[in-house]
Design a protein around this nucleic acid. Structure first.
Lengths: 149, 149
DNA sequence: GATAATTAAATGTATGTACATATATTTGTC
DNA sequence: GACAAATATATGTACATACATTTAATTATC
C-alpha cells in the first residue's frame, strides 16, 4: 500500500519528506511483524538479538560490553535484557575469573535449542523483503547506506 | 558507512537479509538523530507527532481516537502521551459537550508557538535524506511500499 | 603501597510500547 | 424505559529505551 494511504496524509512536501516518513513507518511495521513472530517463542526482539550474539560467541563467553557493541541499538540496556534471559534459563551469567568487574555471559543448551527452532521458523517467514527482487534489495541497501553517510 | 561495517558483521546470507537488517538499523539511526533534536525543545518524538496532528486540526479539537488513527505507530498509548503534553500546557483537554465519553484535545497557544520554532529549526536539519537525490528518494519510497504489500 | 582515575556492570527514574482490563457514556433492542 | 452491546477513554502490568548515577574492581600515578 502506498504510504499516503497508510497514514492518510494527502501529500508530502517533497520526495525527501515522503521517503523519510516511509522509512520510519516501514521499519516500525517490520518490527511489529517480527515481534509478533518472536512472541510465539516467548522472546522479544532485543532478547533474540542478544541470544544471537551469544550464539555467535559460543562456546566463548561474552561480556555486557561486547553485547552493547554488537547490538543494533547501542543505547539500550543490555544488562536488564540479560536479566530476563537468565530468568528464562536461556543464558548463564558468572563473574569473569580474570577480571572480576566483568561478567561472562554464555548461551545455555536450552537457549541454543530455542534459537535452532527459531532459525527453522524464520526461513518460512521473510517479513516482506521477499516482495523485492534481489536487485531491489541490493538497491535498497545502497540507498540506506547513503542516508547514513 | 556500509552496513557491514556499522554492525561489524562480516557477511549477510543474501541481499534480502542485508536489506532487512539495514532497514531496521537505519530507521533506528534516524529516530536517534531526531530524538536528540527534539530533546532540545523538551519534546519526545511521539509527543511531537501528536502536537503536529493537533495543529493540523486546529482550531477544531481532536479526540484520542483521531490521534490514534493518525499516529504512525497505531498501537502506542495516545492517552498517556497527551497527559505529558497537558502537564507542559502545550495542549488542553476537556470533555466533549456533544459526547461525554470523548475528550476534546486542542493545541494551546504555547504549543503552536513551540511547533513554529521547531519548523524553523527542522528546515536546517534534514537527517540524512538530503544525501539522496530526489530520484533516489522516490525510488526508496517505491521499494518500501513494495515491502509492505 | 596508598590514592586517584578509569572501567564494567548494575540500578534509578522518566518515558514509551504492547496488550489486557476497567470505567463511564451512549446506542440498540426488547 | 430497562438492559445488553458498543464506544471512548483511562488504567494496570510487563517490558524496553534513554540517560544519569552508583557500586565494585582494576589500573595508573605519586
Amino acid at each position: 500500500m502506498k504510504i499516503e494511504d497508510e497514514i492518510k496524509q494527502v501529500a508530502f512536501r517533497d520526495d525527501y519528506q515522503k521517503a523519510h516518513v516511509n522509512l520510519i513507518f516501514t521499519a516500525n511495521w517490520l518490527q511489529q511483524q517480527q515481534s509478533g513472530f518472536f512472541k510465539q517463542f516467548g522472546l522479544t526482539l532485543p532478547q533474540f538479538n542478544i541470544l544471537r550474539i551469544l550464539r555467535g560467541q559460543h562456546p566463548k563467553p561474552a561480556t555486557v560490553n561486547l553485547l552493547i557493541e554488537r547490538m543494533l541499538d547501542k543505547t539500550s540496556n543490555a544488562s536488564r535484557i540479560v536479566d530476563k534471559l537468565e530468568a528464562k534459563e536461556l543464558v548463564t551469567r558468572c563473574v569473569c575469573p580474570s577480571n572480576r568487574r566483568a561478567v561472562d555471559i554464555r548461551i545455555s543448551d536450552p537457549g541454543l535449542e530455542l534459537l535452532g527452532r527459531l532459525d527453522a521458523a524464520m526461513n518460512d517467514q521473510q517479513f516482506g523483503v521477499q516482495n523485492l527482487t534481489s536487485a531491489d534489495a541490493a538497491q535498497l541497501s545502497r540507498l540506506l547506506d547513503k542516508i547514513r553517510d
